[in-house]
């Protein structure tokens, strides 16, 4: 189901005229040109497109892991281009939660420690109850002291989802969150992610090439020929 943005909700993410290109041995390669779109608070948005179309590049730009050559990105009303590297780090910590395709858990940390990491990085005291609640939400009560290498792919992604929510961010960015999982597990993990986003009232931007995943979002943007368009 594709829903239109409602006028009474404030925009959370505003991407304006963003372009990105890379210098390679074969010359400059453009990935995105003048991409503009807006995601409102509480929305769930999918970005789709064929392999190599620039989906992941766009996610790294929105996630402040990279900077655009041109254009601006504002999140929660803050213009990110004006932030220094350290401010960007703090911004990522407080305002953005990531769910990666390859889970990206910290290998020597247990499930609990992985989920607590964003809170610990923010130098705030870890609230054990909050972490326990998140563990409970993702159904890993009996694995809280397990190390990542003992977890299945589905379990790892659940940890990643809980970690993304740990610091109560405004925006959750998910890069192919079901890409490394089998269909059944992927389905469960996606439901868990969507449910968590709903329960916590978060905004979700998900990168996927799976149409069935995209179909469960409020809106879908498609990247084609360096440009981004919203599907009707």
């Amino acid at each position: 189901m594709i829903s239109q943005p409602t006028t009474d909700v404030k925009p959370l993410l505003v991407v304006k005229e963003v372009s990105k290109s890379f210098n390679t041995a074969r010359g400059e390669i453009s990935i995105l040109k003048n991409a503009s779109f807006t995601v409102n608070q509480g929305e769930k948005v999918a970005i789709v497109g064929p392999s190599g179309s620039g989906k992941s590049t766009l996610l790294s730009l929105i996630g402040l892991l990279d900077t655009p050559n041109q254009g601006s990105i504002s999140i929660s009303g803050i213009e990110t281009a004006t932030l220094s590297e350290n401010e960007l780090a703090v911004f990522r910590n407080k305002r953005i939660g990531f769910v990666f395709q390859a889970f990206e858990l910290i290998s020597p940390f247990t499930v609990t420690e992985n989920i607590s990491t964003p809170i610990e990085i923010s130098k705030e005291a870890v609230n054990g109850e909050v972490v326990s609640k998140l563990i409970n939400e993702v159904g890993l009560d009996n694995r809280r002291d397990a190390l990542p290498f003992t977890l299945s792919g589905g379990e790892k992604q659940r940890v990643a989802i809980a970690r993304a929510l740990a610091n109560n961010p405004d925006l959750i960015l998910a890069d192919e969150p079901t890409g490394s999982l089998d269909r059944a597990t992927g389905e469960k993990v996606l439901s868990l992610l969507l449910n968590a986003v709903d329960v916590h009232g978060k905004t979700l931007v998900i990168i996927t090439h799976d149409e069935s995943v995209a179909s469960r979002m409020d809106r879908v943007f498609e990247i084609k020929n360096l440009a981004i368009h919203e599907r009707n």
Binding site: G63, L65, E85, N86, A89, V90, F91, R92, N93, K94, F98, F100, E104, L105, I106, S107, T117, P118, I121, S122, R163, N167
Partner: peptide, 19 residues
């Protein structure tokens, strides 16, 4: 080589490059 990826994970979660 193992740690650089973990460092990247921590930076994605908000740690600064210096930290």
């Amino acid at each position: 080589s193992a740690r650089r990826r973990e460092g990247a994970r921590l930076r994605a979660l908000g740690a600064t490059r210096k930290t």
